[in-house]
């Protein structure tokens, strides 16, 4: 193995010998998604989180560490390491956020953490009955909320500013971008009006990529992983919406090609479960129904914009753009309205 990688693993505290024979290597490359060092001419390349991960085995062959290797110009990894170091040291979160340390070589950054031997939530969602699913996702959201609350105390510098989040103003560049990409102005107007009606919302640090694959279940506890985007988004309900969308993609039987907004308003167990979770999350954040609706619209607009900005192939981004039209239509038809977030529904 390249001595640069061995040096990095050793300085992260792993018992590697510089003279170890190649056939004694104890690393598995997983989730390799881009070269390190990165190839030239990156613009337009949508693989934004370049690099690969390593599963490191101990001398007995059992996984001992999990490492992320990223290029030196990757700014998300140091951010994640800092967040995890601060949060994992707090006794309130030490059983929710795993510790991580980081080292650098001439050409890459390596983040190492102990291997968590558990089950990623995405692999078990399909086996859950609706009531169990509701309870599980509700627990995950409570855990994420706890992380957000503690992080607000420990990492106050993550807040962009002290003012409440003005959804209409914050999302305006995204709407302008979507307008330039061909989203009809009538759709943009409907979405903007909903955001204006929501007004300003209290800021909450969001995980940013809270999908079931980033939640690991062990015998006694939950672990939340992947804090690369933590705090970047500060609009409440974002994590809840993302968790529901991605969970709904996993458990929908048969797999649904319908956009998430349409699935959300459907009168079936999955739809009502999703609405209930959103209601609970909004209530827990102290949001009014109008604010909650605005936060949900913000999520749909922001997510579609992010996907499109990554320059993914059109076939991949198209459903997210068309979801904006479905959402605008549902808002006009009042299928999606503040009433969805009142406890009587």
């Amino acid at each position: 193995m390249k001595s640069e990688l061995v040096t990095a693993l050793m300085s992260a505290g792993m018992p590697f010998e510089p003279t170890e024979r190649p056939d004694q290597h104890r690393v598995v490359i997983v989730a390799s998604r881009g070269a390190i060092p990165p190839p030239v001419s990156l613009p337009g390349d949508f693989v934004w989180n370049r690099g690969f991960n390593l599963l490191v085995l101990d001398k007995g062959g059992s996984p001992s560490h999990y490492c992320k290797c990223r290029p030196l110009d990757d700014h998300l990894l140091p951010h994640e390491t800092r967040v995890r170091q601060v949060l994992s040291h707090d006794p309130r979160l030490s059983s929710l956020v795993p510790y991580a340390c980081q080292t650098e070589t001439r050409r890459f950054r390596l983040q190492a953490s102990g291997y968590i031997s558990g089950t990623p939530l995405n692999t078990m969602l399909r086996t859950l009955r609706p009531a169990e699913l509701l309870s599980t996702l509700s627990q995950v959201l409570k855990a994420a909320e706890k992380v957000s609350r503690v992080a607000a105390d420990l990492l106050p510098d993550l807040f962009h500013n002290d003012r409440p989040a003005d959804l209409a103003r914050d999302v305006d560049p995204a709407l302008a971008y979507l307008g330039r990409r061909g989203v009809a102005s009538v759709i943009i107007t409907t979405l903007r009006n909903t955001l204006l009606a929501a007004g300003a919302l209290p800021r909450r640090l969001q995980h940013g990529d809270l999908w079931p694959g980033n939640v690991v279940v062990t015998k006694r506890r939950w672990w939340i992983l992947d804090f690369e985007l933590f705090g970047q988004i500060q609009v409440p309900l974002y994590d809840a919406c993302h968790l529901l969308r991605t969970s709904s993609d996993i458990v929908a039987t048969p797999p649904s090609n319908d956009v998430w907004v349409n699935r959300l308003v459907q009168r079936n167990p999955l739809g009502s479960l999703s609405r209930q979770l959103l209601r609970d999350a909004a209530a827990s954040d102290g949001l009014s129904p109008e604010q909650a609706l605005g936060a949900m619209v913000y999520y749909v607009v922001d997510f579609a914009t992010r996907i499109h900005r990554r320059a993914v192939p059109a076939a991949f981004s198209r459903p997210f753009l068309s979801e904006l039209g479905h959402l605008a239509h549902a808002l006009e038809a009042e299928q999606v309205s503040p009433v969805m977030f009142t406890s009587s529904t």
Partner: peptide, 25 residues
């Protein structure tokens, strides 16, 4: 384009194919 994953273009241009180099000395 593989519409199911959106990955096909990356599959061709993706330098991840060369990460075996880190396993070589």
């Amino acid at each position: 384009c593989d519409t199911s994953t959106g990955d096909a273009v990356a599959r061709i241009v993706d330098g991840a194919r060369g990460n075996w180099i880190w396993l070589m000395e």
